[in-house]
Computed example of a mutant assay.
Amino acid sequence: MRGTGRVLVIGLDPVRIPGWDPEPVVAAIARGQARFADLGIEADLCLVTPEEDVEAVIVAALTGKDYACVVIGGGLRNHEPLLELFERVVNLVARHGSGAAIAFNRTPDGSAEAALRWLR
């Protein structure tokens, strides 16, 4: 392992997104969290929906603990209608993340590998 430090994973809450089956994403997130545990890395989740006060939720998460890396999930990045929300999330991390590295996962169960690229 290249290093350790607490990680925050920010993504869409699959359980609260209407119109699709959340179970595959919930399972992938659980696998991702288990991978962090296997590596001995403390990782917190911040799962949001576009309908809530995303800024308040994310700022509270970012300022609640000291993070070495923040992983932003593909659900926020890859869905064109959420481009503005994705930009807001990146800027919130830059503003309130206390110098945390920013990483992007390819899948919900790949968050640990994304963080490991930046943890020293």
Rank of each mutant, 00 (worst) to 15 (best):
D66A: 04
L45F: 05
D38R: 13
A56L: 00
A30R: 12
I102G: 05
V57F: 00
V48I: 13
F36A: 10
P24G: 15
T63F: 03
K65R: 15
L8P: 00
A103V: 06
P14D: 12
R77G: 00
R88W: 03
A43G: 11
A115W: 02
F86L: 04
A94T: 10
G97N: 10
H96I: 01
L47W: 03
L47S: 08
I102D: 03
L39Q: 05
I58M: 03
L92R: 09
V26A: 08
A114N: 00
E80C: 01
P24L: 12
V90L: 10
L76T: 02
A114E: 02
E51N: 01
N78Y: 07
R16L: 10
L83E: 15
F104D: 07
V89S: 08
G73S: 11
G64F: 14
A100I: 01
P22A: 14
R77A: 08
S98H: 11
K65D: 07
I58V: 15
R88V: 15
H79Y: 15
D21S: 14
P14T: 14
A115Y: 03
P14A: 13
G99R: 06
P50M: 14
V59F: 04
G40V: 03
R31M: 01
A28R: 10
A94K: 11
G110W: 11
N105K: 04
G73R: 05
A30L: 00
C69V: 14
Y67L: 06
V59E: 00
P50T: 13
D13C: 06
C46A: 12
R95H: 01
R106M: 07
A101L: 01
V57H: 01
A27H: 07
T107A: 12
Q33N: 00
G110Q: 12
I29P: 04
V15E: 13
N91S: 11
P24D: 15
A112I: 08
R77W: 04
L83W: 09
G97R: 12
D66H: 09
L76K: 02
A68F: 07
F86Q: 01
T49K: 03
R88P: 00
V54L: 04
G5F: 04
V7I: 07
I72A: 10
V71N: 03
L39T: 07
I58D: 06
P81K: 09
D109W: 14
G99N: 04
